[in-house]
């Protein structure tokens, strides 16, 4: 197991051992369940099952985004706050291994949370006409958007030893990517195309909601993730010797 795997294991176990993992998990699952039963099951019985599934993934993506922001805050800022970053800094481990190990641990935990909602789409499948493929596509979308927001969060967390600062930076950047869609509607072409292409949700997530894979959406999320993990790594490198 390389350094990435060693750090992944520590970080994933930290989520399981610490209250933050349980709190985020409980809140996300409670709100997902509440929205599902309150909004979808309580709504017009004539809704198509495909539409119901799409709605489920729509609000699940919102919950995933919020959970990703919260889960990412501690990843690096807490290490600096408690002094354990010094252990990583003086160990023969590359910064990209640290960032990747932490990212994958957070993504695995977030994915486990999302997986715990599987009973909701299965209920839709039992009572409607949707396929496993549509459900899988939705969860792939949740993983991709969650990964992108986690990457933004790791970058925010790498900037400061304060988790509050990390929260503000991450929230601002994530909100900005959500608001690009509204901005694209308010400006003229070609700026509108530029901003809509960057919109993290309304442009790139609906395909997954409907069980459709678009290469451009997958490339977008992976690029966004890579870009912010790269920024986080460079930030770590710059701060490692300070």
């Amino acid at each position: 197991m390389g350094a990435t795997g060693i750090i992944f294991r520590r970080e994933f176990n930290a989520y399981v051992r610490a209250p933050i993992g349980y709190i985020v998990g409980a809140v996300v699952l409670f709100l997902d369940g509440l929205l599902f039963f309150g909004y979808i099951l309580g709504a017009d019985a004539q809704m198509l099952s495909g539409y119901v599934l799409s709605e489920f993934f729509y609000f699940a993506s919102g919950m995933t985004t919020i959970a990703a922001v919260v889960l990412s805050l501690r990843l690096i800022a807490e290490e600096r706050q408690t002094g354990t970053q010094l252990l990583l800094d003086t160990s023969p481990v590359r910064d990209r291994e640290i960032v990747l190990g932490k990212f994958l641990a957070a993504l695995a935990f977030l994915s486990a949370l999302n997986a715990a909602t599987i009973y909701m789409p299965l209920l839709i499948m039992v009572n409607g006409k949707i396929t496993i493929g549509q459900i899988v596509a939705g969860y792939v979308g949740l993983t991709l958007i969650g990964g992108a927001v986690l990457a933004i969060g790791i970058f925010g967390s790498a900037l400061s030893r304060s988790q509050l600062v990390a929260a503000v930076v991450t929230s601002v950047i994530t909100s900005m990517f959500y608001l690009f869609w509204q901005i694209s509607e308010a400006v003229e072409y070609p700026l509108s195309s530029f901003f809509s292409a960057l919109a993290i949700h309304q442009r790139h997530f609906p395909g997954f909601q409907q069980g459709i894979y678009h290469l451009r959406d997958i490339v977008y999320y992976l690029s966004l993730t890579w870009f912010f993990l790269y920024l986080a790594t460079r930030t770590m490198e710059a701060k490692r010797w300070e």
Partner: peptide, 19 residues
């Protein structure tokens, strides 16, 4: 630089692997 959530044994094993 000790992680409070880890047991001493797990922590030392983690540091050893890290090194």
């Amino acid at each position: 630089p000790v992680y409070g959530d880890m047991t001493v044994r797990d922590y030392l094993a983690f540091v050893g692997r890290l090194k």
